[in-house]
Nucleic acid binder design. Structure first.
Length: 422
RNA sequence: GUGGUCGUAGCUCAGUUGGCAGAGCGCCAGGUUGUGGUCCUGGAAGUCGGGGGUUCAAGUCCCCUCGGCCACCCCA
């Protein structure tokens, strides 16, 4: 009998949970100091809300839930839509927009939300990639200016710093810049999505691969070449400001406001970097950052770290998403930390398990319980441990398990409470 | 969803052309020690991921299936 959890999910042992809780508390504490308030939404949502047509692939990844009360045997030819009506959320952003639309009247403007919770995607699992995983999300709803982006990035970098993660690279791009690039090289509106996906793969397949795939998609050979020319010139500028200046020259179709906002974001990042330890933060304009979710409308971000194989955080502006639920356009922006990807990288002090009360079987049980009670009344943790084997071996085991002190209770009496030391 | 690769004790892994299921560590017991990982002796423990097939005989060969890892796809 296989007692393992379902594929792509994990059991978490006490030490893992202790680490996760401690890291989570640090992140949440950091976010709270920026004014983000924690909310919770259900794990399930109406399927129609989760699969509103954005990205056919994403819909396939949703875990769908059968309607209640179906007959044990369903008729042949019945449509899937008649069998399922709910689904497990695949991110925290879509539920947030429903939450906001439902509660807008009780929320301040702008509303800064923090969410920490599990999401599900029915992907093929790999290391660092699960079917159930945890996101740490912060979002600002109702702030149209780039103040939201600057604040979200600073909060995320501060939170990562609080758990000891430094040397982060912030890759910034803008969906409007991407659209201007596509227009400039002659990619039609309908081919936009596929064009973005190919561009996103540049760091994996190189320019040769990008050109090949563009041709495969039916673009002329000139598209790839022109694309490479523009992207290389921008990324070769050496500084974000230089990159923005070149982007302005090369992509005349882009609105001035896009450039201004990018400058503001980089200015904010450089100020954050100046206040942080040297090397803790680098930022660049990377015109190949795309982000998978289709709902982004403005600046988009991906945070990379040399120790992480893939992005540790990502996000961006999604000004049209709340409007789908609320019926009235409300600007919004958010960033999500991939909790499962940063938790192992985080600085972590194991919790103190307190006092181990080593008792032999000869000691009356009530006496041991009484002792433990007294320890707990003093505010410490106490755990009853049966005395067995060699004392020195048992003490060493307890020490490495996380206990900080011990008491030996024997029929002859009770020892002093002594510290366990390495 | 597609392709590759692996799956033997709690853990890390050996296991030859198919021929009695193994080691180290850990765990348990006893001795030594007697308030800090000593040493010695002994012990428990595996339907060899699961199912089917070939064979006198399968951990080993074949098929299916489940799971891990890797590359796609996509993403945090």
């Amino acid at each position: 009998m296989d007692n393992g959890p379902p594929r792509g999910t994990r059991d978490l042992l006490p030490d893992s949970v202790a680490r996760r809780e401690a890291v989570m508390a640090e992140l949440a504490g950091s976010y709270a100091r920026f004014g983000f308030r924690r909310i919770e939404t259900p794990c399930i949502e109406d399927l129609s809300r989760l699969s509103w047509g954005e990205g056919g692939d994403n819909e396939k990844l949703i875990y769908k839930i059968l309607r209640r009360g179906l007959d044990p045997v369903v008729a042949a030819g019945i449509a899937l839509g008649d069998l399922v009506d709910l689904g497990l959320r695949y991110d925290l952003t879509v539920p947030l927009t429903r939450f906001y639309a439902n509660n807008a009247g009780k929320l301040p403007l702008p509303f800064r939300a923090m969410q920490i919770g599990p999401v599900w995607r029915a992907e093929r699992p790999q290391r660092g990639r699960f079917r159930q995983f945890t996101q740490c999300d912060i979002d600002t709803v109702g702030e149209p200016s780039v103040l939201a982006e600057a604040e979200l990035l600073e909060a995320t970098l501060t939170a990562l710093g609080a758990i000891g993660i430094e040397g982060v690279t912030v890759r910034v791009n803008d969906r409007r810049l991407l659209a201007a690039l596509a227009a400039e090289v002659g990619v039609s509106e309908s081919a936009l999505r596929a064009f973005y996906v190919i561009l996103d793969k540049l760091d994996k397949i190189g320019w040769n691969g990008v050109r090949d795939e563009l041709v495969e998609q039916g673009h002329s050979g000139a598209v790839g070449g022109r694309c490479e020319q523009i992207v290389s010139l921008i990324s070769g500028a050496g500084s974000p400001d230089g990159a923005i200046a070149r982007a302005a020259d090369l992509l005349p179709g882009m609105a001035e406001s896009v450039l201004t906002e990018l400058r503001e974001t980089f200015d904010a990042l450089s100020r954050v970097g100046a206040a942080a330890p040297p090397g803790a933060l680098t930022a660049c304009l990377d015109t190949t950052v795309v982000r998978g979710m289709g709902y982004y409308t403005g600046q988009i971000f991906e945070l990379a770290h040399p120790d992480a194989p893939s992005a540790i955080a990502g996000g961006g502006r999604y000004d049209d998403l709340v409007g789908r639920s609320l019926g009235k356009k409300v600007p919004a922006c958010g960033i999500s930390i991939g909790f499962d990807r940063v938790v192992e990288m985080a600085r972590f002090a194991p919790p103190d398990l307190g006092v181990a009360l080593l008792h032999s079987a000869e000691v009356p049980r009530w006496e041991v319980l009484e002792m433990a009670r007294r320890v707990r009344l003093e505010g410490d943790s106490a755990t009853l441990v049966s005395r067995r084997g060699q004392l020195k071996v048992q003490l060493a085991t307890l020490q490495s398990a996380g206990y900080s002190s011990f008491v030996v209770v024997e029929p002859g009496g009770v020892s002093e409470r002594r510290p366990l030391r390495g």
